[in-house]
């Protein structure tokens, strides 16, 4: 009987102990979660805001239109050749600043573009052959052969004032 009591007592201790440990673990897990949540609610420090988190990367997919094998450079660094028809994949740390790229394909004008590291992104760059550069904005027509052919500045200066209320946007 004594032995049975002792056995039951021992079992009770074991149950209580187990429950205690389980409760303790639950509480600890809950506390850790609470700490984590609290940490999440805390505003980030300047250091946390401006430092790139290790292992957090983004992928930038670079391709050309039309698809061509093109060299992609970032400053002096050669990032590779676009393996057409697939894009060139660049991996960069997230929020690590933009990449100013130069893309060169044979038979086309070099293109200077920018890729961002906020998130995964695709950079599809239109290529223009030199013969078609007149289609691009900024193309400058040849000046008049005869320098006197154009209107003198004074001739076009201060033309008749417009009749509409000047520089006031029309009503919607």
């Amino acid at each position: 009987m004594k032995a049975r009591c002792a056995h039951l007592f021992g079992r009770r201790i074991l149950v209580v102990g187990t429950l205690g440990v389980a409760l303790a673990i639950s509480v600890a897990v809950w506390a850790a979660g609470k700490d984590k949540a609290a940490a999440k609610d805390k505003p980030a420090t300047a250091e946390e805001i401006t430092t790139v988190a290790k292992g957090d990367t983004v992928h930038i997919y670079v391709q050309t239109v039309p698809p061509r094998k093109a060299q992609v450079k970032w400053g002096a660094k050669n990032l590779g050749i676009i393996p057409t028809p697939r894009p060139l994949t660049i991996e960069r740390p997230r929020d690590s600043g933009p990449l100013d790229l130069v893309i060169r394909a044979s038979g086309y004008l070099p293109v200077h573009t920018r890729a961002y590291t906020f998130s995964d992104s695709r950079v599809a760059v239109k290529l223009t052959p030199p013969a078609e550069k007149n289609k691009l904005f900024g193309y400058k027509q040849e000046p008049a052969q005869n320098p006197d052919g154009g209107p003198p500045p004074a001739a076009t200066a201060a033309p008749a004032p417009p009749s509409a209320p000047a520089m006031v946007a029309p009503q919607p």
Binding site: L109, P110, V111, H112, P130, L136
Partner: peptide, 11 residues
Amino acid sequence: RQFLAGDDVFE
């Protein structure tokens, strides 16, 4: 948007 500056295209 692209534009031409010299003989290079800028985007």
